[in-house]
Nucleic acid binder design. Sequence first.
DNA 1: ACGGATCGTTTGTGTAACGCCAACCATTTA
DNA 2: TAAATGGTTGGCGTTACACAAACGATCCGT
Lengths: 170, 170
Amino acid sequence: MFHAVRKLGHMPALPVEESEHRSGPLLDHLARRMRLRSESVLAPLGLRPRHLVALTVLRESGGISQQALAGTLQIDGTNVVGLLNDLEAESLVERRRSPEDRRRHVVSLTTAGAKRLREAECALAGVEDEVLGALEPAERDTLYELLRRATSGRQVICAEESGDEPDASC
Amino acid sequence: MFHAVRKLGHMPALPVEESEHRSGPLLDHLARRMRLRSESVLAPLGLRPRHLVALTVLRESGGISQQALAGTLQIDGTNVVGLLNDLEAESLVERRRSPEDRRRHVVSLTTAGAKRLREAECALAGVEDEVLGALEPAERDTLYELLRRATSGRQVICAEESGDEPDASC
DNA sequence: ACGGATCGTTTGTGTAACGCCAACCATTTA
DNA sequence: TAAATGGTTGGCGTTACACAAACGATCCGT
């Protein structure tokens, strides 16, 4: 009879007790609700939710290469091309060759793009009121601020350098 | 008695100036990052992000009809069937006929489902650390709480009864 | 009791948003 | 001069849906 050798080196490390609940699924859920309603509101402006994400990122980061944009958006480079084609076709975005490295395109918002983005944000006010109805104005501001900081943070190039496996924590 | 009028005279209505920035796109952006990384972590558990959203909703709301679930998740009824089939196939979820209305199925988490959900949340700790790296623990808690309240709030059956058009606000 | 609605289910069709591969050009770098 | 790199195009495959039609079981109003 093998006494089950409970190899639980009972980590003394963990200082706080894990709240255990992850915001991932909630984020997913809320984003979906918002996105669905946004679509109809955005349609008259000729934009789709994904475009809005891209425009928002571009506003925040002045001018970046398409590669960097792909990294930030976490979508494949070839898809960035199509996305930017959409936006450039409406002059919301501009591709300039980088002077230092002329292979690169520096993508940036045009004034028309910034304007359209503001219009879209304005049009989304109602949607946000619906979806975030359970939160008070101050809380919505807090939420916005947290999201802004979370998204503008470094994008963790990927887990290449961290040789450690993240498992086994719980 | 006329002095009171003074206050109303000049439309003091808007107390704060609109921040104008919408959290929709940020929500989308952050949710995508989280979802992408979650997929690989969730795969060994036989779950996909959408399943996790469903399980989370089910945990929160005890037992609900599939219709209600479709409403909360905002996905088509036929797709709910498939989603629940996935979950029921692994005994994570249970469909019982409602006693009051035997057409209805009352869907609820099984104990195995609750356990698997906890495991998944545990497995997602690392992902959350990566994606929300820019936020401090206390802020992550705040974020979680805001998301929880926002998602658990009434789902605004849809804008049918509100006769007003939401436009023209800006 | 009958006919019409409702809940869940199956099947089938369509679409949008991707990822991935391969080829290509212009450019930079070794 | 030979790679490597950034962007572009085209094509193929997948996933996650929506939407419609038809069906069985059940409820409900007259």
